[in-house]
């Protein structure tokens, strides 16, 4: 099933930027600012694409049917269809799968995070929810129930394969890599926001940084 892919045009002789968004809820909180950033990249002459990972955003695939490895394969397939050099830019959990584009000119990462931290926060959301409804639950019991079927964590149904994949995943060593934190671009950790927000200044600063990093990588 073909997934949606948001594209903004740019100059054809420049590398294209493949955007790997954060995973799960953090993706929703960042999407608006990421799209603002793509628009700025386009104005600077750099094209970009933001594919939906299967089971995320507009995808019709059930999240419980996918694993981290499926996402890596999906990214590699998107990159393979581009007939020009690619710079991969990832945010947060996106850094767990961005090395799937093995022939990229370079990588750019914003505040990468370990998969185990993502799982921990999701399991805690479930525990906090259960407590509010007067039910006691624990991380071990929740994890154990994944053996019998997908587990609902913070509104996402995750398979045992996805949980195991996330638990073991850390951002891979890639080269050349430019890695930033929000303060480097005068921004804040928008992906933590309880209510999605936007930061146009941060979007412009990220676009300028990615644009110049793409040029540096292309000249290597």
């Amino acid at each position: 099933m073909a997934e949606h892919c948001l594209r903004f045009p740019g100059s054809n002789d420049q590398p294209a930027v493949l955007i790997v968004p954060p995973l799960f809820d953090e993706a929703n909180r960042m999407r608006r600012t990421l799209v603002l950033m793509m628009r700025t990249l386009s104005a600077l002459g750099t094209s970009s694409l933001l594919p939906d990972l299967p089971g995320q955003n507009d995808s019709l695939v059930d999240t419980e049917a996918v694993s981290l490895n499926d996402w890596r394969c999906a990214l590699a397939a998107v990159a393979a269809q581009e007939n020009r050099p690619i710079l991969v830019a990832s945010w947060r959990g996106g850094a767990l799968i961005d090395d799937a584009v093995s022939n990229a000119l370079g990588w750019w990462r914003m505040a990468p995070i370990a998969g185990a931290t993502i799982v921990k926060a999701m399991i805690r959301t479930r525990i906090a929810c259960d407590k509010e409804s007067g039910r006691q639950s624990g991380a071990e019991a929740i994890r154990a129930s994944a053996a019998e079927g997908p587990v609902e964590l913070a509104g996402n149904f995750l398979s045992a394969a996805m949980l195991d994949g996330l638990d073991a995943a850390t951002p891979s060593l890639v080269e050349p890599l430019r890695q930033l934190s929000p303060s480097d671009v005068g921004g804040s950790a928008l992906w933590l926001r309880a209510e999605p927000s936007e930061d146009a200044t941060m979007a412009e600063a990220m676009a300028a940084d990615i644009h110049s990093w793409a040029a540096i990588c292309a000249a290597r």
């Binding site: 809820d25 926060a121 805690r124 959301t125 906090a128 509010e132 950790a189 933590l192 309880a194 209510e195």
Partner: peptide, 16 residues
């Protein structure tokens, strides 16, 4: 804004 998900996010972020 401080719902279950925000509480979980806050605790995990404070740990870090």
């Amino acid at each position: 804004e401080l719902d279950s998900m925000a509480v979980a996010t806050l605790l995990t972020e404070l740990e870090d």
